[in-house]
Nucleic acid binder design. Structure first.
Lengths: 140, 140
DNA sequence: GTAAGTACGCACAAAAAGGTAAGTATCTGA
DNA sequence: TCAGATACTTACCTTTTTGTGCGTACTTAC
């Protein structure tokens, strides 16, 4: 008990959460952590990249992103909307019609995310070689 | 049953897993998905960025990354090592001494990740404003 | 008239992630 | 001599995430 579990080198612990101190994400209580988690969550990454291609409807996204359940997609979209990355436009028509698109801020961050996914796509072969070397069991 | 759950616009489904077809990550079975998940997992992001500053020992990382448990850190490091992003050097000395650093590939991807975290750090204030505006109901 | 599509919300269950505490082996410092 | 640091591993348990299936309100297509 009473152990100093973690120490950071920030000289102003309280303020660090509100300013752009490099390494803010290293602080466990900083809201940046949560934003990072939202953005890098399993489906959010894919949603952001998908929306970079333009406005989509809910089920368009669902079809585009292989493997998402409706629940997860809805949940992810809500989280992204809350953080201001995605904007939702709902038309009160008879068969529900909702359109999702990136906000300016969303476009910026989606760009970064796409760079990442592109890198992975391009270097997948290299990565897989490493994996097989260290694993030696291929998942068929 | 037998429903066409998901369709992708890739014209060569089997090959798509091995080539750089944009949108590979949208396919649920593509290994790129798993790599993406490893890299964007909660702690891996922070480990990558931390290691960008140079070689670290296990407990140095643990102190730097606020909030990680030993278990999670070890697990994350192993996953990153398996994918070839992190290299581990262990010295068989009496008090265990192990050094972690980024591989060339790790440096590349960590660079992308850092760009992302930097963006979040820099735009945190903007994001938080959006959040507060949309939340307004705290789940108490 | 029945099925399917639309965009979800809700309840329940399964799976995954994560935390806690302890153990290992050995040395150092008090 | 006894705690503490080192780099983990393992077992156990809790929390979170994710999936499944159903319901909704209404329309169009068959």
């Amino acid at each position: 008990m009473s152990a100093p579990e973690h120490e950071f080198n920030s000289s102003t612990p309280g303020l660090a959460s509100l300013l752009q101190i490099p390494g803010m994400v290293f602080s466990p209580d900083c809201p940046a952590r949560q934003v990072l988690q939202t953005v890098t969550s399993r489906w959010a990454v894919l949603v952001l990249v998908a929306l970079l291609a333009g406005t989509h409807r809910f089920s368009e996204l669902r079809r585009k992103i292989g493997g998402v359940s409706e629940k997860m997609l809805a949940q992810t979209l809500q989280a992204l909307e809350q953080d201001g990355f995605v904007s939702r436009k709902s038309f009160p028509v008879v068969p529900p019609h909702v359109e999702y698109s990136l906000t300016p801020m969303g476009k910026e961050i989606a760009g970064q995310v796409e760079t990442l996914t592109d890198w992975i796509n391009q270097n997948l072969y290299r990565i897989l070689q490493h994996k097989q070397r260290s694993e030696c069991d291929i998942t068929e």
